[in-house]
């Protein structure tokens, strides 16, 4: 019986575990796209229902929506961008809630995987931030002014530009959007992999036929539970980090001086 379990458990989890089978319409609908639609629907319906009938003394739902919006508006938009950042608060809030919902699917039973564990979705989110801050910078300073501000930071002696300009160019136009996407992706990917290692490893240890190893299997399941809680924290943290970084990139694009 032990060998049976061992043979059925795909133990060392690998990248192939992230290529889920499609559900319908060829390869167009997978579990990932279903979860993304669910997250989008949740954010839209949540705010529509909360604000359908606003009261002076807020109901529970309205209070939740208001505190989520207030948290991002005061804690991120005003704090990072300044008073100019108020107009970005709605975008940042919906971005935060969407990423949070998509991330938290990683620990919700039956979903158990975050769409953000697939690089395509973080790339789209990072691209929208990238286009946003380029657009804002060019709109405010003009193309030449924006590039001059970014590539030739004032106050440096001119021979230093040989060093500074390539570094600034790589930072603003390549690594910033790249790290934004990779950070979110890698956190969700690693989180899912850790959960797979502990749960599948627990089954493998239980089925090993050795009493000491079987006992270690229960420790592995315990670790899986602890890691699930840890993943829930990471889901909130990464959504917050993504929004804070987006706000800070917008702030740099809008700032007058380097």
């Amino acid at each position: 019986m032990g060998d049976q379990v061992l043979a059925d458990t795909p133990f060392p989890p690998s990248v192939e575990d992230f290529y889920l089978p499609s559900i319908a319409f060829g390869s167009w609908v997978t579990k990932f796209s279903l979860l993304v639609w669910l997250a989008v629907a949740f954010v839209i319906i949540f705010f529509l229902v909360a604000y359908r009938n606003p009261k002076l003394v807020p109901t529970k739902g309205q209070w939740l929506a208001e505190s989520a919006y207030g948290f991002i508006r005061d804690g991120v938009a005003k704090e990072v961008i300044g008073s100019d950042g108020l107009r970005f608060a709605p975008y940042l809030t919906s971005l935060f809630l969407f990423i949070f919902m998509a991330n938290i699917f990683g620990v919700i039973p039956l979903a158990q995987i975050s769409p953000m564990a697939h690089i395509a979705y973080p790339i789209v989110l990072a691209l929208s931030t990238y286009v946003l801050y380029l657009y804002l910078g060019i709109k405010k300073h003009g193309l030449g002014g924006y590039l001059k501000d970014r590539l030739f930071p004032p106050g440096a002696p001119w021979p230093l530009y040989v060093l500074l300009t390539p570094i600034e160019f790589t930072q603003y136009f390549i690594t910033q959007p790249l790290t934004l996407a990779v950070r979110l992706f890698a956190n969700m990917f690693a989180g899912h992999l850790i959960l797979l290692v502990f749960t599948l490893g627990g089954f493998v240890l239980l089925g090993s036929g050795n009493i000491a190893l079987a006992a270690a299997g229960f420790i592995s399941f315990g670790m899986a539970i602890v890691m699930t809680l840890f993943e829930a924290i990471v889901a909130i943290l990464q959504a917050y980090v993504f929004v804070v970084l987006t706000a800070s990139y917008i702030q740099v694009s809008l700032s007058d001086e380097h």
Binding site: R183, F185, A190, V241, S248
Partner: peptide, 23 residues
């Protein structure tokens, strides 16, 4: 606190690059 998360996220990025490249 904002700067805490900024600094944390920026220095963490390199480790995550390592994780992705390992795969």
């Amino acid at each position: 606190r904002t700067y805490l998360f900024l600094g944390f996220a920026l220095s963490e990025a390199l480790a995550l690059f390592g994780l992705v490249l390992a795969f």
